[in-house]
């Protein structure tokens, strides 16, 4: 019996030390994430401005939506939800996310399938594939900005030589091609990440399945559709969700490559521009809050859908 109480005291001590060990990390995360998030949401309901943050007063949902009556029976809606520029940036963000993630998945799958073969120089190819991932986003945006330069850019030169275009294209400056320019850079930069995640999934497929299929004389395309694809689907899905969440908050590329165009302004760019450039701190906070809600919803539904095992009880 004495042994039992000693043991429970030991386990209580261990529980206490657990919280002690967790405290520094939890406090840091609270100060750096939870509290600022709460403040952002609060600011979105106030009249805060950049210089007078601390004197913010509650104004209700005015930053989101407000009906202004002109006194003669007519009026107009103001606020974020009535701002066409906001909806334009929502549309830009969604379009960017869908197109970029689709292409990244497709190219990532191709690269992963190639890297999953054994051939001479595979290590070198994998190293080369990682390079775009390693280059800072800002640097890749600048590199491509130079390659896409309307007069001296190598991309125009290349496409003209190949006869794809008849005259130089102002990739980043023209509203018609600005979004394409952003997409090219983003797809180039993040396909490696996708390829690696899918490759990890491919390498977990047991080899004997392929051998059995080979013995039965199943054609390769059928093997891919009926065996490989279903087995790597979970890995692909995880990669797609990770990338989609990333794509929805895109900021760096747009800010550097095509600043100040309606054609590419995304939700993050819209929010920051209101926060720090237009001195509309509260309004920008409202935009940040909405972006957070969108991403939170997607994340929660993903976690619920996959029922992630976090306790580690199965191991």
């Amino acid at each position: 019996m004495a042994g039992k109480t000693a043991q429970s005291r030991l386990s209580r001590n261990r529980t206490r030390s657990a919280w002690l060990f967790l405290a520094p990390m939890l406090v840091t995360l609270f100060v750096v994430a939870a509290w600022p998030l709460g403040r952002t949401v609060w600011f979105s309901f106030t009249d805060a401005s950049l210089d007078l943050i601390s004197q913010a007063r509650w104004v209700g949902i005015r930053n989101y939506l407000e009906w202004v009556d002109w006194g003669d029976g007519t009026g107009q809606y103001y606020g974020l939800l009535a701002d066409p520029r906001w909806w334009r940036s929502v549309w830009n963000t969604v379009r960017f996310a869908v197109v970029s993630v689709s292409f990244e998945t497709l190219f990532g799958l191709v690269i992963a399938l190639v890297l999953n073969q054994s051939f001479r120089g595979r290590g070198l190819v994998r190293a080369a594939v990682l390079i775009p991932w390693a280059i800072p986003t800002i640097v890749s945006a600048k590199m491509w900005a130079w390659m896409m330069h309307d007069q001296f850019g190598i991309l125009n030169d290349m496409f003209m030589r190949l006869g794809l275009i008849s005259e130089p294209v102002a990739w980043t400056a023209s509203p018609d091609t600005a979004m394409i320019a952003i997409l090219i850079v983003d797809i180039w930069k993040t396909t490696p990440f996708m390829a690696l995640l899918i490759l990890a999934g491919l390498q977990m497929v047991p080899q004997d399945i392929y051998e059995a299929a080979k013995l039965d004389g199943v054609p390769p395309t059928r093997v891919f559709r009926k065996i490989t694809l279903p087995l790597i689907m979970p890995a692909v899905l995880v990669a797609v969700v990770f990338r989609a969440l990333d794509a929805l908050r895109v900021f760096d590329i747009v800010y550097v490559l095509t600043p100040n165009t309606d054609a590419t302004r995304t939700m993050s760019v819209y929010a920051r521009e209101n926060l720090f450039d237009f001195d509309q701190f509260a309004y920008g906070s409202a935009a940040s809050t909405l972006l957070f809600l969108v991403i939170a919803l997607i994340t929660i539904s993903f976690i619920l859908a996959t029922r992630m095992d976090l306790e580690g009880n199965t191991t």
Binding site: P36, R39, T40, R249, S288, L291, I295
Partner: peptide, 10 residues
């Protein structure tokens, strides 16, 4: 999963 922009003003 937090977008950085969501905590920016806070």
């Amino acid at each position: 999963m937090f977008p950085q922009i969501a905590v920016l003003s806070g």
